[in-house]
Amino acid sequence: MIIHHPILGPRDAQEFVYLGDAALMNRPDGMTAGIEEFHDWLYNRDNPAGEHQELWYHEQGDRSWLVVTRNTVTHEITKVELARDVARSKGRSK
């Protein structure tokens, strides 16, 4: 698989480390969330067959975190964004 890095261009997926569903970015607020909400965030997954947004870390590159939109049935990658930009678009400061 080739991941089109928004800054570095096309890179082999081997250069990256895979973390999982990009929903892991949406960690509940530790001061208010209950144990069930935290459990759901950490352990449960949608695990779709089809389009999936996921976190890839460019370990052997610029060490940026990316949000890659990829089809889990065909392995086709349709969108690659910096995780930072995705977080900011949701109103986060970083």
Binding site: G20, D40, Y43, N44, R45, D46, N47, P48, A49, T72
Partner: peptide, 18 residues
């Protein structure tokens, strides 16, 4: 392999990735 797909019919999310 397809547990998440089938259990979604019962409205369940599982601690599983395929």
């Amino acid at each position: 392999g397809s547990s998440s797909k089938v259990m979604a019919y019962a409205g369940m999310r599982l601690p599983i990735e395929s």
